[in-house]
């Protein structure tokens, strides 16, 4: 119970976000209309993804310093959770684009940057699956993970800002444009970011524990 307080917090925050995200007043803006509420669901996917990928890189660096299978599993499952969040982010963004811009996908720098970054992480999974030797797999994918992170983050957050982008918050503007500086929106947005990020860590933790357990059981069977 003491160790799991953050999971309870995640449950409370996510339920709050589901209710308040739909019912709290939002700024009345043309074109965006009620879809401004996507800020509570689409944007936290990217926040959660970023935080969990930072954790993944952290575990990868630790693995390279002290190679243990636990650290490899943690890095791998964190990256997988990050990829899941990113895919959900792309999918939700695509739905929004269809009804706001009229197309499922546009060649917007923000969209393409995110897509390329996701492909880079997709390659991480492909790379992992191409080794049979466990230590080689762990070491090389840890190194790749660091480079993937260093390449993906500018694609997500820096390059789209250097050019014009239709995406809200992009195109030279800081991410927190006027529509999310609204104090009512902050009351939901910040809990949403924390809640979805905690959920990402929760999922990664459960997946890692399962993976670790599987390994232990195999070891026991061999012994």
């Amino acid at each position: 119970m003491k160790k799991n307080w953050w999971k309870a917090l995640a449950v409370v925050l996510l339920l709050y976000v589901a209710v308040a995200g739909l019912l709290m007043p939002v700024p009345r803006l043309a074109i965006l209309n009620e879809s401004i509420r996507n800020l509570y669901f689409h944007v936290p996917m990217w926040f959660g993804m970023t935080f969990i990928l930072v954790a993944s890189v952290y575990y990868s660096v630790r693995y390279l310093r002290t190679p243990t299978p636990e650290l490899d599993i943690l890095a791998h499952e964190s990256a997988k959770t990050g990829i899941l969040m990113g895919v959900v982010g792309l999918a939700t963004g695509s739905i929004w684009a269809r009804y706001t811009w009229g197309a499922w996908w546009t060649n917007d720098p923000k969209l393409n940057g995110a897509a390329i970054a996701m492909l880079i992480y997709g390659a991480y999974l492909v790379l992992r699956s191409s080794f049979t030797d466990e230590q080689q797999r762990a070491r090389i994918s840890a190194i790749y993970n660091i480079f993937a992170f260093a390449t993906a983050m500018p694609l997500f957050y820096i390059l789209p800002r250097l050019t014009d982008s239709l995406h809200p918050g992009a195109g030279g503007n800081p991410a927190f444009a006027k529509y999310d500086l609204d104090s009512n929106m902050r009351l939901v947005f910040y809990p949403a970011v924390i809640g979805w990020t905690l959920l990402a860590f929760w999922l990664a933790q459960v997946a890692s524990r399962l993976s670790l357990l599987k390994q232990k059981v195999y070891e026991k069977q061999l012994a």
């Binding site: 309870a8 917090l9 409370v12 709050y16 709290m24 009345r28 043309a30 209309n33 009620e34």
Partner: peptide, 25 residues
């Protein structure tokens, strides 16, 4: 946990009490 939930829901209740009329929502 319950107190936190209650505290978080308070702004929703306040918002529900407000009536507004402007663009199409």
């Amino acid at each position: 946990v319950l107190l936190l939930l209650l505290g978080l829901v308070l702004p929703v209740l306040r918002a529900a009490a407000q009536a507004t009329s402007e663009p199409e929502m």
